[in-house]
Design a protein around this nucleic acid. Structure first.
Lengths: 234, 234
DNA sequence: GCGTAAGAATTGCTCAACAATTCAGCAAGA
DNA sequence: TCTTGCTGAATTGTTGAGCAATTCTTACGC
């Protein structure tokens, strides 16, 4: 890379842009559309997704629909029952316990030992999620608060600095959204965490990672108990 | 469920066997076959997997192959390049670091806080993996030692008692097998861990979870450094 | 009311086709 | 020599039709 080749550096910096050039495949877009319908709650847990209906509704072939559905089954957003079809997953109490066992391991550890726990950018995402939640609450947008809450926990795991962990947490949180759809009173559930998240963020910002991790664990345990209680009388 | 209905209990206990009866779908079996070829090293990292060739070789339609390949792409075993095809993943140094960031968070935490860390069955799996490794070493079966090593780390995560975490670790370990295929000297790499795994298992068995977790973290860091060093001069 | 057997609908999978894209090779031009 | 442009072959992405197997529905007979 010499001065005689001034474009070299610029070209090298473009290699990463390949992903932007290649537009997403149809199957991927179908998967995104269906996933959205599910996590937004427009498709109820337990609801059925007939291939032909989707094919017609989205204007793509049944094979493409099939490919998209398989992907969502792998993500645990949908469940496939052989020869019967795919359904929106209906998480049960055991699923909740399982997810929280995983979260209780990952999230506090990410706060306590995360390599990026003092990286201003990563910590800034915590702060941003807190602000997002407060703003949503200010305009009585409780689904918005719920979304901000998810962003907060995503940011917590982001402190670990592992893309694979981030992705896994995305799946766990998508599953949690299904859980919330089985519950009433979204507001009562999410509102108390506004202050909690703020407190955790402050602890992280001031470097008190051990205490922050303990807070995270405590909040997770509280949330799990609350959800399981709501499931019990259902 | 009365005495007048003696088959009731037996029948009820079979409901879980449905997954066994409903034999796996063709796409799933294709995915298993290809995944095996990859993790066993018969398909080299970077190697290409043309759909038509697979379709012909396995005697299934191209659409079914496609479904299987998509699944494996989601598992990070394969990589899809739009309009070019799917290739066996070639993990780079950054992938190694990412995987170890995740493992360093999950595995020590599972040992330290896992709900099943004193469940004899879960701990027994650790002991079994250690024995498996020693037996493989005794007959100079170094791929066997590598496999036992993976079983050991799987068992470590099993202490957490979360199916979702178990699954995630399965993916991470599959990716690690791809990493090993880029390295020579399987023996030199895996042999030292026979004693280490034994030591960790003893610590878990005697309830010294904090020390066991520290050992796990230490061994993971050593392994990562070793792999990255091997990658450096490649 | 209850089991049951035809009939309809859906899934799992295959086959064939076609446009779009990539790629190797080659020829023309600077 | 190196780059550019073109052409043809191969592969992917997607579609559509079709069929056996399974499940669901419904109407029937007892």
């Amino acid at each position: 890379m010499t001065i005689a080749d001034p474009a070299g550096a610029a070209l090298a910096s473009l290699t990463g842009a390949r992903a932007l050039v290649a537009r997403t495949s149809t199957a991927e877009r179908v998967a995104d559309a269906v996933r959205n319908e599910v996590v937004e709650g427009r498709l109820r847990p337990g609801g059925r997704l007939p291939e032909q209906a989707l094919s017609h509704a989205l204007g793509v072939s049944r094979n493409t629909v099939r490919e998209a559905l398989s992907q969502l089954v792998a993500e645990r957003v949908l469940v496939r029952e052989p020869n019967r079809g795919v359904f929106v997953a209906v998480p049960d109490a055991e699923a909740v316990r399982d997810v929280y066992r995983a979260r209780l391991l990952i999230e506090p550890a990410a706060v306590r030992e995360g390599e990026r726990a003092d990286d201003p950018e990563a910590v800034g995402r915590l702060r941003a999620a807190v602000r997002e939640g407060r703003e949503a609450a200010a305009r009585d947008d409780w689904p918005g608060v719920a979304g901000a809450n998810q962003h907060f926990h995503r940011a917590l795991v982001g402190l670990a600095g592992s893309a694979r962990l981030d992705q896994q947490m995305g799946l766990l949180l998508a599953e949690m959204r299904l859980v919330f759809h089985r519950m009433t009173s979204v507001r009562e559930f999410h509102e108390p965490y506004l202050d909690g998240n703020d407190a955790i963020t402050r602890l992280v910002e001031s470097g008190e990672r051990e205490r922050a991790a303990a807070e995270v664990a405590s909040y997770l345990r509280t949330a799990e108990a609350q959800i399981l209680a709501a499931f019990a009388n259902l």
